[in-house]
């Protein structure tokens, strides 16, 4: 602690910042990525994405010979077709995870990110660095979405790998359209993943808004999942008529249309509009709220 040290810090620029401080350099995406990666919940969630296809595969191996009818409909046909090839296995894995597992995972990454910092008390130290609040939110959101996307890709990638190793590289089959050649099937699969990602933006938006609004990570994650479930339940009530189109989860299964030939894009497009619009609203509210908030945690 010599006088030169102080002198080094006593070069106030126009902003009065300490030497070496630039607002744009604080909390880089990379730093936040490592920050989140160090957390057990991130590792567990990503690990589970790898594990799930293996569990499903094992279940299919053990479940040979069960000849109970599985309800029919497109779900039944997916079960029947799941073991016809790696692509179909991937499709089945995505199908069984889309409605709940992926919702929980996305809610976890997006809902936990700010609220957990608040609950640890580290949020105030980040803001005192100072990381500009907008930047903090932006980096946190980018990283949360990045981990969500990584989860999706890990799930699909693992399923495709183990499914192909076990069941082979065969055309993508469905009961509603002709078989798709493997190359075409991969494209369709990517389109399905893309649509799922856009659809999950609703959950991401809601979870992130709740994450900013509360100090309890569990509340943010659980709240987003609960509201998502509520929306799904309301969607079952046909008496609501056209109002159901406003429900964020109404178009959540529109990706099935991507499997037909020609591709049915109408509901996919509407679902994308719904997802993007809701996410934009939720994120705008999150920013609006956080930039004005008194951090008292």
């Amino acid at each position: 602690m010599s006088a030169t040290d102080v002198a080094a810090g006593r070069r106030p620029g126009a902003t009065g910042a300490a030497a070496g401080y630039r607002p744009g350099a604080t909390l880089s995406v990379r730093a936040e990525w490592r920050r989140q990666l160090s957390r057990r919940r991130t590792q567990v969630a990503l690990g589970f994405m790898v594990l799930l296809p293996l569990i499903v595969l094992a279940a299919f191996q053990f479940g040979n010979g069960g000849d109970d009818t599985n309800g029919g409909g497109e779900f039944g046909s997916m079960v029947d077709l799941a073991t016809t090839g790696g692509l179909n296995f991937t499709l089945f894995t995505i199908f069984v995870s889309a409605s709940f597992l992926l919702v929980v995972v996305v809610a976890l990454f997006c809902g936990d990110t700010v609220a957990s910092e608040a609950s640890w008390g580290s949020l105030r130290y980040l803001l005192a660095i100072p990381v500009p609040r907008s930047r903090l939110l932006g980096v946190k959101l980018v990283v949360a979405l990045g981990y969500s996307a990584l989860s999706l890709l890990l799930l699909a990638g693992t399923a495709l790998t183990v499914g192909t190793l076990r069941y082979g590289w065969h055309p993508l089959r469905s009961t509603i359209a002709a078989d798709l050649s493997p190359g075409q099937g991969v494209l369709r699969l990517l389109a399905v993943l893309g649509y799922l990602a856009v659809g999950l933006l609703v959950v991401a938006g809601l979870a992130f808004l709740l994450s900013v609004a509360t100090d309890a990570p569990l509340g943010a994650v659980g709240g987003a999942v609960l509201l998502s479930i509520l929306s799904s339940i309301l969607d079952q009530i046909t008496a609501l008529g056209v109002l159901r189109n406003l429900l964020p989860t109404h178009f959540s299964s529109a990706w099935l249309g991507l499997l037909s030939t020609p591709v049915q894009l109408d509901d996919v497009v509407k679902g994308a509009i719904s997802g993007i619009a809701y996410a934009a609203v939720f994120w705008s509210l999150a920013w609006w709220r956080f930039l004005r908030k008194d951090i008292v945690s």
Binding site: P12, G16, A17, A18, S38, P130
Partner: peptide, 23 residues
């Protein structure tokens, strides 16, 4: 003001420590 760059010249401990417990 919130986020003012001059905050970078302040080191602070307010309302107890805030650390990532798993590190």
């Amino acid at each position: 003001t919130p986020g003012a760059p001059v905050l970078s010249r302040i080191g602070a401990l307010v309302e107890g420590p805030g650390f990532l417990p798993h590190l």
